[in-house]
């Protein structure tokens, strides 16, 4: 139980994907202009990350038994790309409302480093010491993927809320757009830094 709580807190706050590990910065800056689309993007990313972990983790075990680990990048990116395409088709067929909510964000997710990042992270050996566990298993991997995705959603929603306010302020024209968004992100990062101190 303590293990599970540690994974949740670590994935969501201490090693937050966006502001601590800098994964998925492109959508974090690009799709955070209003809160509704930010939330849609966050949920779509969480969904894909969880399923990607569920599929790539056993496949890496398979690659390992045949000693072809070096193919991991090519295999992973192909799995993610086809997975995104498949999710899009399944949603379109069975859940039009959900498709309308996240459909436009799905194609963008293929090139989101957060998804490939989480697949690479859960097979990395360094994560064992971070999460204080002896061996990684599928359950932990999926849990990590899910809560890393929720951490991403949390960060992007906070960011969109702040940006909605910041955009109404009079700002120097050179700071407008990306620079002021990054400074906003800087303050979010400081807030998340507190979790690392606990």
């Amino acid at each position: 139980m303590a293990q599970i709580i540690l994974i949740i807190v670590s994935a969501m706050f201490i090693n937050n994907f966006v502001v601590v590990q800098f994964l998925g910065i492109c959508p974090f800056l690009g799709v955070s202009k209003d809160m509704k689309s930010a939330f849609g993007m966050g949920i779509a990313v969480t969904f894909v990350m969880t399923i990607a972990c569920l599929i790539t983790f056993p496949i890496f075990g398979l690659l390992k038994t045949y000693q072809i680990e070096y193919l991991e990048i090519i295999v992973f990116i192909f799995i993610i790309a086809s997975l995104v395409q498949m999710i899009e088709m399944v949603l379109k067929k069975f859940s039009p409302t959900l498709y309308n909510a996240m459909g436009i964000y799905l194609p963008l997710i293929t090139t989101n480093c957060a998804v490939l990042g989480v697949c690479e992270l859960v097979i990395d050996e360094e994560i064992l010491s971070i999460l204080q566990i002896e061996t990684m298993n599928l359950g932990y991997a999926v849990l990590y993927g899910l809560f890393a995705g929720l951490g991403f959603t949390l960060a992007i929603v906070i960011m969109s809320g702040l940006r909605e306010k910041v955009n109404r302020l009079p700002i120097n024209k050179h700071l407008k757009g990306f620079p002021i968004a990054m400074i906003t992100a800087c303050f979010i990062a400081m807030a998340f830094y507190v979790f690392a101190l606990i």
Partner: peptide, 11 residues
């Protein structure tokens, strides 16, 4: 720190 990274990039 990570906050410094965002700040540096912004400036």
């Amino acid at each position: 720190s990570s906050a410094g990274a965002f700040f540096t990039f912004a400036i």
